[in-house]
């Protein structure tokens, strides 16, 4: 099975802090990491390769330094990588991003399965996976949490839904996005890391992908950010002080008064 895994380099948003005075993001010392959900995507691909054999290619759209996450992927055991990088890609929304990634994947030859993490922790849109599927004309199943059957022609997967899960048969070639329940990511391997050290990540730009500047990056995006501001919380905030017996009772009283808690039968 030939598997393409889409990965993204993101800032470690767990460590990004908002400066309370200036309401700006403090990013000193914030590392760039592989998007945590993509680790689950890699693990899913690695397990599939263990089961049915094949080849895994990791692909990423990003600036030149994003090659670091692709090398990391080699460290985890993927066979090959491809970086899609071009100044023209900058500022892309998900429409422009899927244009580049879909082209990149199409150029890999006969891919049986595309695997994406559920979402990227900087954008949080969860749009890229299904978007790539539509561009490539592939059926997709999102939020895969487990595999029931794996063979060359189809996958039977469990799709996480709000009230349970669906068991869905996905014909191949197809695309899946995965959630963390799909499996605990393995550590990188020494052999993988040694290979990664010497590995030269191939790069393709817009021209090699057959994309014009109007199709990618900021120019190729349909959506645009017009404002950025600090999150605020609506409603008054109060601090209750006193011994626990009092504050505990006070807060219940306040919630009852405001009809947040109903006492009536």
């Amino acid at each position: 099975m030939k598997i393409a895994v889409c990965i993204k380099q993101v800032p470690d948003t767990a460590n990004v802090k908002l400066d309370p005075e200036t309401h700006t993001l403090k990013r000193e010392g914030v590392e760039s990491i592989i998007n945590p959900f993509d680790l689950f995507a890699l693990e899913a691909a690695l397990r599939l390769r263990e089961q049915v054999g094949g080849e895994i290619v990791a692909i990423s759209m990003g600036p030149p330094q994003a090659e670091a996450v692709l090398k990391e992927a080699i460290g985890y055991g993927v066979d090959e990588c491809l970086l899609l990088s071009d100044r023209a890609f900058a500022g892309a929304d998900t429409w422009a991003t899927t244009a580049a990634l879909a082209s990149g994947i199409a150029g890999l030859g006969e891919v049986d399965l595309v695997v994406c993490g559920k979402q990227a922790v900087d954008g949080d849109t969860a749009q890229v996976g299904p978007g790539i599927a539509r561009r490539l004309g592939l059926p997709h199943v999102a939020f895969v949490k487990g595999f029931r059957e794996v063979d060359g022609g189809r996958l039977v997967v469990e799709r996480q839904m709000d009230d349970g899960f669906d068991v869905v048969a996905l014909p191949l070639p197809g695309l899946i996005t995965v959630v963390r329940e799909v499996g605990e990511p393995r550590p990188p391997s020494l052999k993988g890391k040694m290979r990664a050290k010497k590995y030269e990540v191939p790069t393709k730009g817009a021209a090699e992908l057959g994309l014009t500047p109007e199709q990618v990056g900021l120019a190729g995006s349909f959506t645009q950010v017009v404002k950025v501001f600090a999150p605020t919380v609506s409603g008054d905030r109060q601090r209750l002080e006193g011994p626990p017996e009092e504050t505990g009772a006070q807060v219940i009283d306040a919630l009852v008064d405001n009809q947040v808690i109903m006492l009536g039968g």
Partner: peptide, 23 residues
């Protein structure tokens, strides 16, 4: 932005060649 919506709507936005803002 239910599980169903988050799976379907990005595919639709791509099919309709338009912009989508999630959540």
């Amino acid at each position: 932005a239910t599980s169903l919506g988050r799976s379907l709507i990005p595919r639709v936005a791509t099919a309709a060649a338009t912009g989508l803002t999630a959540d």
